[in-house]
C-alpha cells in the first residue's frame, strides 16, 4: 500500500543520511529535503481529492467561501512552516527553525482576524 512505500522511502533517506552524516553533513540535509519532497508527492494526490470533496460538501451548506479559503490557507501555512522548520532543526539550526514557526503562528493569527471581526459583528447585531 501507499503507507509502506512512504515508510520505505523515509527509512532509505534516513539510512543514506546517516551514512553521510560524519564525512559530509551537507549531503544529509539534502537527503532529508529530498525525502520530504518525495513524501509530499504522495500526499499531493490525496490532498487534491480531499479538498475537492470538501468543496462539494461546502455547496450544500450556506457557508461563505471566504472562510473555507482562509482555512485552506492556514493548513498550507502550517504545513510549509512545519516542513521548513523541521529541515532547519535537522541541520542543527534550531534558532532559525523557531523563527520560522513564530512567523507561521503570527501569519495565521493575522489571517484569523477578519473571521473574528465578522463573528463580533454578528454577535453585536444580535444584542442590539
Amino acid at each position: 500500500m501507499e503507507i509502506v512505500k512512504v515508510a520505505a522511502l523515509g527509512i532509505t533517506g534516513m539510512l543514506l543520511g546517516l551514512l553521510l552524516k560524519e564525512t559530509k553533513p551537507e549531503y544529509s540535509v539534502y537527503l532529508s529535503l529530498a525525502a520530504g519532497i518525495l513524501v509530499f508527492c504522495y500526499m499531493a494526490g490525496k490532498l487534491e481529492y480531499l479538498f475537492s470533496s470538501v468543496l462539494k460538501i461546502q455547496e450544500y451548506l450556506p457557508l461563505d467561501t471566504k472562510y473555507l479559503t482562509t482555512l485552506l490557507k492556514m493548513i498550507g501555512i502550517t504545513y510549509v512552516g512545519q516542513f521548513s522548520a523541521g529541515i532547519c532543526k535537522d541541520a542543527g539550526y534550531g534558532a532559525v527553525a523557531s523563527q520560522i514557526e513564530v512567523f507561521a503562528k503570527l501569519y495565521i493569527m493575522v489571517l484569523s482576524i477578519p473571521v473574528l471581526l465578522a463573528l463580533m459583528e454578528a454577535i453585536h447585531g444580535f444584542l442590539t
Binding site: L9, G13, L16, L19, T23, K24, Y27, L31, L38
Partner: peptide
C-alpha cells in the same frame, strides 16, 4: 521516486 535519494547518496559517498 527513490532514484533521487540513491543519486544523492552516491554523489555524497563518491565526493
Amino acid at each position: 521516486e527513490v532514484s533521487l535519494l540513491f543519486k544523492i547518496g552516491a554523489v555524497g559517498i563518491l565526493v
